[in-house]
Design a protein around this nucleic acid. Sequence first.
RNA 1: GGAGAGUUGGCAGAGUGGUCGAAUGCGGCGGUCUUGAAAACCGUUGUACCGCAAGGUACCGGGGGUUCGAAUCCCUCACUCUCCGCCA
Length: 422
Amino acid sequence: MLEIQRIRQEKEQIIEGLKKRHFDATKIIDEVISADAAWRQKKTELENVAAQMNSISKEIGILFREGKTDEANAAKAKTGELKEQENKLKNEVDALENDITELMYQLPNVPNELVKAGKSEEDNEIIEEVGTKPVFNHEVFPHWELAEKHDLIDFELGVKVTGAGFPIYKGKGAKLQRALISFFLDEAEKAGYQEHMPPLVVNEASGFGTGQLPDKEGQMYHIGEDDLYLIPTAEVPLTNIYRDVILPDDNFSIKITGYTPCFRREAGSYGKDVRGLNRLHQFDKVEIVRIEHPDNTADALQEMLDHVKGLLDKLGLQYRVLRLCGGDTGFAAAMTYDFEVYSAAQEKWLEVSSVSRFDAFQANRLKLRFKNADKKSQLCHTLNGSALALPRIVAALLENNQTADGIMIPEVLQSYTGFDRI
RNA sequence: GGAGAGUUGGCAGAGUGGUCGAAUGCGGCGGUCUUGAAAACCGUUGUACCGCAAGGUACCGGGGGUUCGAAUCCCUCACUCUCCGCCA
């Protein structure tokens, strides 16, 4: 959620910025500003009436204590009209507040100045491309065929037990999952992130805190009986640790990481994009989350990008880095970089990480603040990124490392897997 | 699943209809004293919103109600704890 103060002060810049998303905010912002002006006026009126009521009530109390019952009852009679006014104003103020909140929920974050205007993924900028496409002198197989051939992942069995999109990893396939998770966590720890193991279900307040609710309700699995949600990413529990928190000073830099399974309903997905590991309802991911002073956000983002690059370098995967255009940048993000690895057999790029800065947008919903040098509360900045999501990494590793002698395991993983080939 | 007890400021903990945004203690901050520190003593110390300011308003788990007036009474929801049962 954008800050109302910012909308009052930087109306034009916000409208300009949101144009990069092909989002015309003019109407909403005008409505917000006029509703906000009306709200402040009504609010002041309401508070004046409340002040009068309070002072009369106080007097009545004193009169009763002094035994002046008649005078007290006379004063009581005066309150009727005020009370009516108060109720009327209260209703008006509440209605305006609801209007404003509803309007504000519709406004996405303002893209960073580096973000280019654009409508869809077609307009994303390729910032960097690392490595070369693998060359094969034999037939290449997609990962779902390799997984079946080597008995690594059983998609059919997953369908039997749960449904499509819930694969069962077996033998070396399961071990490879475990190895990647440990490797990613160890690397995050080396980079200064404290490991957390959070709950996999969250309450409604947490869903609102990170912005999955109310908009993306249909994307999460909901446990109706207890009104809890399966997490779509570790971002939700990890970030919500800091909901309603005021950090005591401006000298902080919070870096946390966590491995969790992620659950996504992926309603509306279909076709060849969902083949094999490309899109799942449950998958594993190591997430990194940072809470930073606004002055430090740009540096933090760069560090996170370098971290993810390091992981892909160590795994020996070819990858490219994209800066998403306005239209493709998520609702809450100010800027997002995607990492894609090349799938040799599918001959396409697979997104394996998304690293974003949210600036104060998320913190505003979370009420996550710090005390600045003037002892005033100020919103923190939040950032997060995948480091990394497993399924497509596994897909690329299987496909790109296939040889006539089996599938080669990258050296950095061998101490975790205990084998060097499949 | 059954029974009971709770939810108050950073923490502990009083407060059962009016002068309560809330005693007291601890912690924090500032000061006195001290070569320095500790102790002691004095002062100070919640959040948010409106306002140039003075000041005002709201908040005692959430929501609703009664009342001129609610931390306090009523309803409702959520959560926590204890005991019993079950159990990895």
